[in-house]
C-alpha cells in the first residue's frame, strides 16, 4: 500500500531524472497545474521520452492529466496509457469528467479521482461505483476551497466535511483514501500533525508536493511499535481462545472481543502492507 504520492512537474527534466531515487512510494507526473500553459505540450513530450527511456525502479507511476474539458486531455490520456504508467489522477473528478476519461483510458489503468469541487464531493457515491478502474479518492483541498469561495486555512475547517466524507466513501467502497497536500513545505511539524490527524480518520496516504515532505509523511504514518506489539498479542490470544470456543475474554485487564480483534488484525495488516 502506498503511503506517499509525490507530485513531480512533468516539465522538470531534472526532477523526473531523480524521481525514482526519492523515498516516495508513488510518483504523480503532473501535466496539469504544475505545468505552465505554454509548456503543456513540451512537458508531455518530455514525459513520454522519459517513460520510454528511464528505469523508474519500483515506483508506482501516475500521471495527472489535464481537465477533461481542456484541449490537452485526449493526448494526456494517450501519454498515460504508457505501459510503465499505473494510472491517472483525474482532476476535477465529477461524473462527466470520469465518463470522458473512461472512454479513452486503457482499461488496465487505474484512476485516482481528485475530488476538488463541491459537485465532486456530492457525487462521491456515484464516482466510487462507476468503474472498477477507480481505485482511490484523492482530496484536493486548495481547489475545493476555491470552488466553495472560502479561505484555505491550516486548521482545515473549510474542507472538514469533504475530508470526512471522502474517507467514508473510500472505506465503503474499498478504495484508497489519499489526503490533500500540505502546502507549507518548510513546516514539517505541521505536516506531521496533519498526517497523524488524517490517519486517525482512516486515510491511507498523503500527497507530497515537495520531496522533503515524503520522509515526514512516512515517519508520521509509522505505527507505534508498542501498539503493534499489543495488537499482535491480541490477535494471537483471540485466535487461541476462539479454537476453544471462547469469544470474549480478559487480556491484561482489557476485554477482548471480535471488534477489538478485527481492529488489531487490521492494524497489523495495514502496517505490513505499508512497509516498503
Amino acid at each position: 500500500m502506498n503511503r506517499s504520492y509525490l507530485f513531480i512537474p512533468a516539465s522538470n527534466a531534472g526532477m523526473i531524472l531523480s524521481s525514482m531515487v526519492l523515498d516516495a512510494d508513488a510518483i504523480i507526473f503532473d501535466l496539469e497545474d504544475g505545468v505552465a500553459l505554454n509548456q503543456k505540450i513540451s512537458a508531455r513530450t518530455l514525459l513520454q521520452h522519459s517513460l520510454d527511456t528511464l528505469d523508474f525502479l519500483d515506483k508506482t507511476l501516475y500521471v495527472r492529466i489535464n481537465n477533461a474539458s481542456s484541449d490537452f486531455f485526449l493526448e494526456d490520456v494517450i501519454c498515460a496509457n504508457h505501459p510503465k504508467v499505473h494510472g491517472v489522477v483525474l482532476p476535477k473528478a465529477e461524473i462527466k469528467s470520469l465518463e470522458a476519461c473512461l472512454k479513452v483510458l486503457d482499461p488496465s489503468k487505474t484512476i485516482l479521482c481528485l475530488i476538488e469541487s463541491a459537485l465532486g464531493v456530492i457525487q462521491l457515491p456515484q464516482l466510487c461505483q462507476m468503474s472498477s478502474q477507480v481505485k482511490g479518492l484523492l482530496l484536493g483541498g486548495e481547489d475545493l476551497s476555491a470552488d466553495c469561495g472560502v479561505e484555505r486555512t491550516q486548521a482545515g475547517h473549510e474542507i472538514d466535511y469533504a475530508r470526512k466524507s471522502l474517507v467514508m466513501h473510500a472505506k465503503a467502497f474499498n478504495l484508497m483514501a489519499i489526503d490533500t497536500p500540505f502546502v507549507d513545505i518548510e513546516d514539517h511539524q505541521g505536516l506531521k500533525e496533519e498526517v497523524k490527524y488524517v490517519a486517525s480518520l482512516g486515510y491511507d496516504a498523503k500527497v507530497a508536493i515537495n520531496p522533503r515532505q515524503v520522509h515526514v509523511i512516512h515517519e508520521a504514518l509509522k505505527v507505534d511499535p508498542l501498539k503493534l506489539k499489543e495488537a499482535k498479542m491480541i490477535v494471537e490470544a483471540f485466535e487461541k481462545q476462539r479454537t476453544q470456543g471462547v469469544g470474549v475474554f480478559n487480556l491484561n485487564g482489557k476485554m477482548i472481543d471480535e471488534p477489538v480483534y478485527l481492529k488489531a488484525k487490521h492494524l497489523i495488516e495495514k502496517e505490513e502492507r505499508r512497509t516498503p
Partner: peptide
C-alpha cells in the same frame, strides 16, 4: 535541502 542528498545521508 536537496532531497536526493538527504536520502543519501539517511
Amino acid at each position: 535541502k536537496d532531497p536526493v542528498g538527504l536520502n543519501i545521508a539517511r
